[in-house]
Write a protein that binds this DNA or RNA. Structure first.
Length: 579
DNA sequence: GCCGTTTTCGGCCCGACTGTTTTCAGTCG
């Protein structure tokens, strides 16, 4: 049973307890635990097997620890089974409809006999919903709208689509007079790999006018809510966008308030509430004197609280608040630390630009080096290179090198790992290549056992330096392959193999939680773009976003080191590299 | 149900907006 499966059970329990009318703090405790389980970097089933204390997971105490143990050992949970008998699954599914919470769901079930979304649609259509006390025609209409929206609902969208969409909205908003400081907040600012909705913060002396202009933008297809300081709309593409304004001198608190994930915010506000301070989007209120202190910048806000500014990417309730209070946050890797790219395709395989173009573009970015890593022969569809073509390519690279003094071009290959774990090119060829990156491109339906052994076998080759996009996921399009990443991590440490954070926004693979775990174990990572054109180098920012979410410092990322160190690294004996 | 530099008991983040009803409960983020 995977952590995500366990988390699902506890989320469900929270919903069911909520429907039941249980103490809301108990409900919240289950939600908090579910979220912590979801984010927990280690396999819970393994922890239970090895008799480790689950209470080290924040939000998991004695009772939930026992329930987790029961669940993974027996596959069942008494409380869960009981609750599910009390409420038909259809009633729980009503909670998926925005605007319907536990109170409304239970009322609909009790008073109208609604047991599914289809039942509800009927009841809203024939007027029964509108006839209920404290409901009305508008409520019924909203329910129908939301059901429609739910049916065509795209799931969360990849950050690579959300960021450009936000930039377009921001550009439009900048045209509105008196609007300043437009900044995306929420999961986008935290660089999560997928985004549920867009949050944009800003300041305005006349927020009503700005809100009015926002809701009238041509991109807006529906206005969900509109007040004097905030509005929620649906954009043409189906994406929800929330806009929020405060006065200029409160902008720091606003941004802070809407950036952290829910759990982070709860912990932070709770911590300072105990000290008599109330944190809100307007500033910090001393609860004794009722005096509100405002902050124009986040830096000033954190300084007032006596803590370090926390990078947005790690405002996820993973211990960052405690460290910021102590003043011991790590200095995270930055995009400006990147000194080269390890995963670059050219027109020798399926890339669109020549070696020279790719190299010049890398140099123009201020990089010191690049690894040319075209596909190997097994990728026929990508015009993968044979041993002979690799030899020819090496000659061209030598020629290009002469024209780009001071820039180091490493020879490389993105080597196919075959279905049985054997490699796509012979050892003597691989031995002549500076940097060998291996990856899976076929046979993705294998069992966990087979896929894990397949990748580990490749890692055991003395010539394979890096494993690229280890889970092969394509966000929203292809599920990750079945692979035991904990075993892959062990093999990486044992063999001295590096792991890639593939920066293509549809991949982001390693994902944040995997990169976090790998970094913690002491595995060296590379952040690489998998560029197939010169402008693909831009996606480095997404990969660095993942590295930052994994709490990586520059020293954890090999391509933040200068060319001379890279040279020495790959010349060294592979088995000694991580020691 | 969880948790502790106020607490092992008594708390548990904070505010905007909606719909329906005249003061607020419910929901959301």
């Amino acid at each position: 049973m995977k952590n995500s499966d366990i988390a699902k059970v506890f989320y469900d329990i929270a919903d069911l307890l909520d429907l039941k009318g249980e103490n809301m703090f108990k409900v919240r405790a289950y939600q908090k635990a579910a979220r912590a389980i979801e984010l927990w970097p280690r396999d819970l089933e393994a922890m239970v097997r090895e008799g480790e204390d689950l209470r080290e997971i924040p939000g998991v105490g004695e009772a939930i620890a026992k329930k987790i143990a029961d669940l993974v050992t027996t596959g069942k949970l008494e409380l869960y089974e009981q609750l599910r008998q009390e409420f038909p699954t259809g009633v729980v599914s009503l909670l998926d409809i925005p605007g319907i919470g536990p109170r409304t769901a239970v009322r609909l079930a009790k008073e109208l006999g609604v047991k599914s979304v289809v039942d509800l649609e009927q009841a809203a259509t024939d007027g029964r919903v509108a006839a209920l006390p404290r409901m009305g025609p508008k409520t019924a209409e909203n329910i129908l709208d939301q059901i429609q929206a739910l049916r065509r609902k795209d799931q969360r969208i990849p950050i690579g689509e959300a960021l450009p969409a936000v930039e377009a909205v921001q550009a439009a908003l900048r045209q509105i007079p008196g609007v300043h400081n437009l900044t995306p907040a929420g999961s986008l600012r935290r660089f999560r790999d997928t985004i549920g909705d867009i949050d944009i913060m800003g300041t305005s002396d006349r927020p009503e006018d700005a809100i009015q202009a926002f809701t009238s933008l041509p991109q807006v297809s529906q206005v969900l809510a509109k007040g004097p300081t905030k509005a929620s709309v649906i954009l043409g593409g189906g994406l929800q966008a929330d806009l929020r304004f405060v006065e200029h001198d409160s902008f720091g608190s606003l941004l802070q308030y809407f950036t952290g994930n829910k759990e982070h915010n709860v912990i932070l506000r709770d911590h300072f509430r105990r000290q008599g301070l109330k944190l809100s989007e307007y500033g910090i209120t001393d609860m004794k004197t009722e005096r509100l202190e405002k902050f124009a910048t986040e830096e000033a806000f954190y300084q007032r609280l006596g803590m370090q500014w926390i990078p947005p990417e790690i405002r996820e309730a993973q211990g960052e608040i405690e460290l910021a209070l102590e003043g011991t946050l790590p200095k995270l890797v930055e995009i400006s630390d990147v000194k080269g790219d390890f995963h670059i395709h050219t027109d020798w395989s399926d890339g669109q630009n020549s070696i020279e173009d790719m190299v010049l573009a890398a140099k123009a970015r201020g990089y010191q080096y690049a690894v040319i890593s075209d596909h190997s022969i097994g990728r026929g569809i990508a015009r993968g290179l044979s041993a002979e073509r690799l030899r020819q390519q090496k000659e061209v690279i030598t020629e290009v090198s002469k024209k780009t003094e001071g820039f180091r071009i490493f020879t490389g290959v993105e080597l196919d790992i075959r279905a049985d774990g054997s490699l796509d090119l012979p050892d003597d060829v691989l031995a002549g290549i500076d940097v060998v990156t291996a990856s899976v491109h076929s046979g993705m339906g294998q069992t966990t056992e087979r896929m894990t052994q397949r990748v580990i076998r490749a890692m055991e080759s003395p010539h394979v330096d890096i494993i690229a996009h280890p889970t092969c996921r394509l966000i929203g399009t292809r599920q990750p392959v079945n692979i035991d990443m904990e075993e892959v991590f062990k093999a990486a440490l044992r063999t001295g193999t590096l792991l890639e954070i593939n920066a293509m926004p549809q991949r982001l693979d390693l994902k944040d939680a995997h990169a976090y775990r790998a970094r913690k174990l002491g595995i060296k990572l590379v952040v690489a773009t998998d560029s197939h054109r010169t402008d693909h180098y831009d996606v480095m920012r997404y990969g660095i976003g993942v590295a930052r979410r994994a709490w990586c410092q520059a020293g954890d990322i090999l391509n933040s080191q200068p060319a001379s160190d890279i040279e020495a690294f790959f010349r060294s004996d592979k088995g000694q590299r991580l020691r």
